[in-house]
């Protein structure tokens, strides 16, 4: 296969999967610009290894794993260079998760979760992956995935329950 043919094959792959991956990136980052950067970084890595990736059983699964790893490693890098700014350590956002009157957009609510929990929520409830698949994708045990899923849902509940109720019963 020539380089031009490889590039064309890759372009077709991006056109077919780009929307799905961009949306997953948006769930993870909660920010359009960061999501664009993350998606572009992911596809750049995929393109760099395209000859091998294109022969894989599921190039999309490879791209999704690359997206998750890029997101989590970027967060680790940023965190290692960041200085603690206050007593709110361990929280991704200062939104009070236990205030039932707080009403947030879903993406804002997700942004209150730690990055790994966000990745688990994206895989489990957006990609509809099983606990076992999610554990494999993130190199975690199934019990960790279950525990973190439950904790994430508990934290999201007061933030988004009202919105979901209104959406379903306007």
């Amino acid at each position: 296969m020539t380089r031009d043919e490889q590039a064309e094959e890759f372009a077709t792959f991006v056109r077919e999967t780009g929307t799905q991956l961009h949306r997953a990136a948006l769930l993870l980052t909660g920010d359009r610009q960061l999501a664009e950067d993350l998606t572009q970084t992911t596809y750049a890595k995929v393109f760099a290894s395209w000859r091998r990736v294109s022969r894989a059983d599921s190039p999309l699964a490879y791209a999704r794993t690359t997206l998750l790893n890029s997101f989590l490693s970027h967060r680790r890098l940023r965190r290692s260079s960041e200085l603690p700014a206050g007593p709110d350590l361990g929280h991704e956002s200062s939104v009070p998760a236990d205030d039932p009157t707080t009403r947030l957009d879903l993406l804002d609510a997700l942004a209150t979760l730690p990055p790994l929990d966000r990745a688990i929520v994206a895989l489990r409830y957006w990609e509809d992956r099983s606990v076992a698949d999610t554990a494999r994708d993130l190199d975690l045990t199934e019990s960790v995935v279950r525990t973190r899923s439950r904790r994430a849902l508990q934290r999201l509940r007061p933030l988004v329950a009202a919105e979901l109720t209104e959406r379903n019963h306007p």
């Binding site: 596809y43 929520v121 988004v160």
Partner: peptide, 30 residues
């Protein structure tokens, strides 16, 4: 929650042609 996430993201559409161009250029550099 899964349904709500899909609803929330339904209208999010990236510029796929720009994504192809940028990713190809960055991938070539890698």
């Amino acid at each position: 929650l899964g349904t709500a996430l899909h609803d929330r993201l339904r209208d999010e559409r990236p510029d796929l042609e720009r994504l192809v161009a940028d990713a190809t250029r960055s991938g070539t550099r890698i």
